[in-house]
């Protein structure tokens, strides 16, 4: 029980600290904050586990772990699973395509939007679009593709090939269509 309690406490600190940091610092790339912060809080969990008594000062004996090593590891796993859920929540709610569409509709209110109006909101004046427009430079910046500036040919890097191949395997494993 001690591992679970400390895990939840440290996870709460992680959430509050990253939310506050995002609000104040306004990072351009939130992933560069979330992942390092999750790793940074993990030692805090370990240290708090080691330095606190087995019963945390209040747990009944029957709730005290008889295998502290297992309890410690369990708490750490729970922490990272929760951190993964939190980061996923962020990217799904704040960066997700579905949410972006729904926010447009929320702002439109009861009159709603036609499909054409929604699509035009994602087009750029030069004929480009806001889906590929930021995504391609980001994929190039993070090393998944290269783009020839003269021919506009996109090519997968080794890293990009690995991720794409893994995606294909997983989609087949889960019996999914092209998706996206």
């Amino acid at each position: 029980m001690k591992g679970l309690i400390l895990s939840v406490a440290v996870f709460t600190c992680y959430v509050v600290s990253t939310a506050a940091a995002c609000h104040i610092l306004r990072p351009r790339r939130h992933a560069l904050l979330f992942f390092p912060a999750a790793l940074a809080w993990a030692p805090v969990y370990y240290i708090s586990y080691v330095l606190t008594p087995a019963d945390l000062g209040f747990l009944p004996r029957a709730w005290t772990a008889s295998l502290p090593a297992v309890d410690l590891l369990y708490g750490l796993i729970v922490y990272f699973l929760n951190a993964h859920s939190y980061i996923d929540f962020f990217f799904a709610f704040n960066g997700g395509f579905s949410m972006s569409l729904m926010l447009e509709l929320l702002q439109a209110g009861e009159k709603g939007l036609s499909t054409e109006e929604i699509i035009s909101g994602y087009r750029l004046p030069d004929g480009g679009d806001k889906i590929y427009g930021w995504r391609l430079p980001r994929l190039e910046e993070t090393g998944y593709i290269t783009i020839d500036p003269q021919t506009n040919v996109c090519r997968l890097t080794a890293k990009g090939r690995v991720v794409a191949a893994l995606t294909r395997i997983l989609k087949r494993f889960l019996n999914l269509g092209r998706g996206g």
Binding site: L139, R178, G180
Partner: peptide, 8 residues
Amino acid sequence: LRFLLEIL
């Protein structure tokens, strides 16, 4: 991921 798959 869909985009990367299309290139692959």
